[in-house]
Design a protein around this nucleic acid. Structure first.
Length: 273
DNA sequence: AGCACCACCTGTGGGC
DNA sequence: TGCCCACAGGTGGTGC
């Protein structure tokens, strides 16, 4: 479900609601949601921790605690909802409830059960256990020079696969990758080595603009995504190509769909070369 | 290195 | 109407 803009939307909304709150013992409706440490250790270690602030790296949401870091990855259908009452949002797929001292709570639900939570002791263990293969955050940690340098190491990659690779840089997913490549007029199969300097710069600017626009509009609800209050995103109405098979591009050409890097891929065969 | 394929899950929508 | 298949915002492992 969520790519960088959706996770950032949740982060921004959640931060003022939960900063300063202290976790009570959690309720693990589905213990296997906890990836690290062992679920029985997770509960005791989390209780009593106070939230200092909320961070993010790529698609990972990071709760910085006074004694550790709680990391959450929502994968495809994960959903984190805050309720002031502490009552669960009444969903079928509730996996973990994280109540706070004082009565409010965070509830993690996830239809497809792919999402995971980790609790680590600090930044070093976060890198070691959670972010081992994750590159720099593509929105916050990659400027143009760094982007070009990273491209230099991936000359043989095709653009769709490259942008989806979280080890290259973290945050892009299937929707925003297609939208990004449409914006800069580059074909998903183009090889990095074929890009001119100007095309590389346009690619970089498109990454930034599409993510910024996604955040500005509260993310994209194509199917399941909800923000931390349960509301829908708003960017789906502004998608140029994703999900628009057969619809007409402003240039007059029908949008096509193929499979690239194992993912459904939408593009305009005339605008994207 | 890069890519294709499968696995992990549950639900939904299109075709017949 | 109902069944079956393909596909869905992600990622990790395997094997070529």
């Amino acid at each position: 479900m969520p790519e960088l803009p959706e996770v950032e939307t949740i982060r921004r909304e959640l931060e003022p609601l939960v900063c300063g709150k202290t976790f009570a013992p959690p309720i693990l409706h589905m213990p296997s949601t906890i990836e690290y440490p062992e679920p029985e250790d997770f509960s005791g270690l989390l209780a009593g921790n106070t939230i200092v602030n909320l961070g993010r790296r790529g698609k990972y949401l990071l709760f910085n605690l006074d004694r550790g870091i709680l990391a959450v990855h929502l994968r495809m259908t994960g959903n984190l909802v805050y309720t002031a009452s502490g009552l669960p949002p009444g969903e079928r797929f509730l996996r973990v409830s994280l109540p706070f001292a004082g009565g409010s709570a965070l509830h993690y639900s996830d239809m497809r059960r792919f999402g995971r939570l980790w609790l680590v002791s600090g930044p070093d263990e976060l890198e070691e256990k959670v972010l081992k293969r994750i590159g720099p955050d593509i929105l916050e940690e990659v400027d143009l020079d760094k982007f070009v340098a990273l491209l230099g190491k991936r000359q043989r990659s095709r653009l769709k696969a490259l942008l989806l690779d979280q080890g290259f840089a973290a945050g892009m997913g299937n929707i925003y990758t297609d939208e990004c490549l449409f914006r800069c007029g580059l074909h998903p199969r183009r090889q990095v080595s074929s890009l001119s300097r100007k095309e590389a710069e346009e690619l970089y600017r498109s990454v930034k603009s599409v993510l910024a626009d996604g955040i500005e509009h509260g993310g994209t609800t194509f199917r399941d995504y909800r923000n931390a209050s349960g509301a829908l995103g708003d960017f789906q109405s502004r998608l140029a190509v994703y999900g628009r098979l057969g619809e007409t591009c402003p240039c007059g050409t029908p949008i096509e769909k193929t499979r690239e890097a194992g993912r459904g891929t939408y593009f305009c065969p005339r605008c994207q070369k």
